[in-house]
């Protein structure tokens, strides 16, 4: 691992700490609870991965386990973030209870699926199947984000913050799923995919940090304007 990796890692960690610290200082931690928990977990994952890397080395089995397990756990937390955003979108329809049930069902389903896969492949966890598992988890995340975006669009949600949080998540999930799939198809892309995944790890906190910093809570935009072909505004 070269200095570029460490620089990207440091930038990612700094952005994650910034988002959580800013939320705490501005008393926005609880209003965006799931997102802040997810970002805090990202920071925690980075620290734990760094410690394992320093102690056991990049090529060690311990680092491989730490990397894949923490990533799978983070994906589950990311589902929670999606469901939080869904609750915000459906707020006025008073169906928050159903969204929570769907979240719980999804979490249990994902855990059972992952558990079954792990049990069946316990002997070679660090091999091909973890790549496949990550690819599937991110793909499901991407589909969920897309469904959420459709809801944003159909319900004419106008909160700029919410729209940008959802879209940044969509960019992250789709790019990550594509990278895992690429790695699954071609083993030789391992190094490129690993670096691209590290870069993506910066982009999501960067996009969210921008949204929380630059977009005020009361800012509004029309999502229809983002999708329509005729964008002639001037």
């Amino acid at each position: 691992m070269g200095p570029v990796y460490y620089a990207v890692w440091t930038a990612s960690f700094a952005l994650q700490v910034y988002i959580v610290a800013r939320a705490l200082l501005r008393r926005e931690f609880f209003p965006y609870l799931s997102i802040n928990i997810f970002v805090a977990a990202m920071a925690l994952r980075d620290v734990s991965q760094y410690l394992v890397l320093m102690r056991y080395g990049f090529a060690s089995r311990e680092y491989t386990y730490a990397y894949y397990y923490s990533d799978a756990l983070l994906t589950v937390l990311m589902y929670l973030a999606i469901m939080y955003l869904a609750q915000q979108v459906f707020r006025e329809m008073h169906i928050g209870r159903y969204v929570r049930w769907v979240t719980a069902g999804l979490l249990v389903g994902t855990a059972l699926f992952a558990g079954a896969v792990i049990q069946r492949n316990a002997g070679h966890l660090a091999s091909r199947f973890v790549v496949e598992l990550s690819q599937d988890l991110y793909f499901v995340g991407m589909v969920l984000t897309y469904l959420l975006w459709v809801a944003v669009f159909k319900l004419r949600e106008t909160r700029t913050r919410l729209v940008q949080l959802v879209l940044a998540l969509g960019v992250y999930f789709s790019a990550t799923a594509a990278l895992w799939a690429l790695r699954n198809m071609f083993d030789s892309t391992h190094a490129i995919a690993a670096f691209a995944l590290t870069l993506l790890g910066v982009l999501l906190p960067a996009a969210w940090a921008y949204t929380f910093t630059m977009v005020p809570e009361e800012a509004r935009l029309a999502p229809a304007g983002l999708a329509e072909e005729a964008a002639a505004r001037r």
Binding site: E132, Q135, D136, Y138, F139, M142, T145, Y146, W149, T160, V163, Q164, L167, A168, G170, V171, S174, A175, A177, A178, A181, L182, N184, M185, A207, V215, A219, L221, A222, G225, L226, A227, A231, R233
Partner: peptide
């Protein structure tokens, strides 16, 4: 994997365009 790759790339381009537009629209 190939199917997931293609679908994810299509979604990625779409999400990226929407995200950039949301920034431009502001």
């Amino acid at each position: 994997a190939a199917l997931i790759f293609v679908v994810s790339m299509v979604f990625f381009v779409q999400f990226f365009v929407w995200y950039t537009r949301s920034v431009i629209q502001a």
